[in-house]
Design a protein around this nucleic acid. Structure first.
Length: 414
RNA sequence: GCGAUCGUAGCUCAGCUGGUUAGAGCAUCGGUUUGUGGUACCGAGGGUCGCGGGUUCAAGUCCCGUCGGUCGCCCCA
């Protein structure tokens, strides 16, 4: 085992049901994204390191210890994307996509983070991503979140996932709230857990979702964002929630929900589940009006979310396995040659058709049954001479002779 | 980066307190049936017991290290 080739830690190989499950999530996303008028975009898997370092915030864990960064042969520092938003924002600027604003775009693909793998967490994982760039209206927040909700519905997992919603307010709100939190937690500094004391310097907002029981009383009496919400920020949030209500999207307020990344403003939300071990978020996002400006662009309002494909596919039901309409069972070399042509004809008629490469009749019949074929088409010398084939219904066991030209029609092809 | 736990055939696992040629089910291949599957029966192939070192007359079994999986902390999709 040990001297065999093996996959890189935190990567996955998928076959059969796992792969089908994965892909059913992606195709559901592609369906829903069209319903909401999000156009598909493609962006590179890697970018200049600065694209992520600047936008994610130098001090975040993602940047400081989780990025796959390497030098190319020209000596430039490149990084495998740890998420989509920064790359899309970069494209928005460097490709001049401002002319299309407001821009609703969707994409999906692999992302990379150097972390210890565990349930629902991988080094190469896959995200669905949706962004609305250039729209500062709360209606866009509601539409974007609604799309996530519909995706969960289509996957049949809405009852296992809950939408948690919060606002971080506008910059003035956020700054005032943050200052109040720092003051509050500093005054209780010596009662905080070690972890939270570290957060106090690095990321005080994160103390709010501490898991340490000792922190709970301090967190419970911490100032909430509502105490510092400006009039504008409050009415913005009210429009988001009323939009969700109008769309029939259920949500719960979570005043402690914050974002680890620096550029979020106003709306923050997570679709969470309790069925994924230590991981709870399956879709997470928010409004990041400050991001594009920090990349050197104009002030550009934007809102977006990302979803974990693996996490969603672990929750979703397995799709029906692929079953061929027809399995060909040729007997002898002449029949094998003829079967290749028959298979091609059936496939052109839109019928899924499979044929084992070798084996005697029994073996081929077993393969046909194992693949779940609806019909077996049996062709031997006798049949070929008469221009017919044996057509066997695998479920009922009934078998009849059918003219080879009529096969496609007989099994329901076009 | 830290912690816990596991590592025996392709897969899921058994192997008691260390004791002769390491087992089962499933899967694969072949046969019973040289043209009929989803049921049955017979048989075959396949394992340096993750790797390295140590203790012992003797190690799959005990000890140390290492690599890998899983789960958790941090953080996050």
């Amino acid at each position: 085992m040990s001297n065999k080739v093996q996959a890189i830690r935190g990567t996955q190989d998928m076959l059969g049901e796992a792969a089908e499950r994965f892909h059913s999530v992606v195709s559901a996303f592609d369906r829903v994204r069209r319903l909401y008028g999000f156009q598909r975009v493609e962006v590179p898997v890697f970018e200049a390191t600065s694209v992520f370092a600047r936008t994610l915030g130098e001090t975040t864990d993602v940047v400081s210890k989780e990025m796959y960064t390497f030098e190319d042969r020209g000596g430039d520092s490149l990084t495998l994307r740890p998420e989509f938003t920064a790359g899309i924002a970069r494209a928005y600027l460097s490709e001049g996509w401002q002319q299309h604003a407001p821009l609703k775009v969707a994409t999906w693909g692999p992302a990379f983070r150097y972390e210890r793998p565990q349930k629902g967490r991988f080094r190469q994982f896959h995200q669905l991503d949706a962004e609305i760039i250039g729209a500062g209206e709360p209606a866009s927040d509601a539409e974007l979140i609604g799309m996530g909700a519909q995706l969960l519905e289509e996957l049949g997992i809405s009852d296992r996932v809950e939408l948690k919603l919060n606002t971080l307010g506008d910059p003035a709100t956020r700054d005032a709230w943050r200052a109040a939190l720092v003051e509050h937690f500093t005054s209780h500094r010596f009662d905080l857990s070690d972890e939270s004391r570290l957060r106090l310097d690095k990321n005080p907002l994160r103390i709010l979702d501490s898991k340490e029981h000792n922190d709970f009383p301090i967190v419970d009496c911490a100032p909430t964002v509502d105490d510092y919400l400006s009039e504008d920020a409050a009415s913005f949030f009210a429009l988001v929630t009323s939009g969700l209500d109008a769309a029939g999207v259920k949500w719960t307020r979570d005043a402690r929900l914050v974002r680890g990344l620096d550029y979020y403003r106003h709306t923050a939300f997570e679709f969470v589940t309790e069925d994924l071990g230590a991981q709870s978020a399956v879709i997470a996002g928010g409004r990041y009006d400050g991001l594009i400006e920090t990349m050197g662009g104009p002030l550009t309002p934007a809102v977006g979310w990302a979803a974990g494909v693996e996490r969603l596919s672990m929750l979703a039901a397995a799709p029906e396995p692929l079953k061929p309409d027809v399995a060909l069972v040729p007997l002898g070399e002449r029949a094998e040659a003829a079967a290749i042509g028959i298979a091609a004809t059936l496939r052109r008629a839109g019928l899924a058709c499979d044929m084992a490469y070798k084996g005697n009749m029994k073996r081929r019949m077993q393969k046909a049954a194992a693949r779940g074929a609806r019909y077996a088409v049996i062709i031997g010398d006798n049949e070929l001479d008469q221009g017919e084939a044996g057509l066997k219904d695998m479920a009922s066991g009934e078998q009849s002779q059918v003219a080879i030209e009529a096969l496609a029609e007989a099994v329901g092809g076009k």
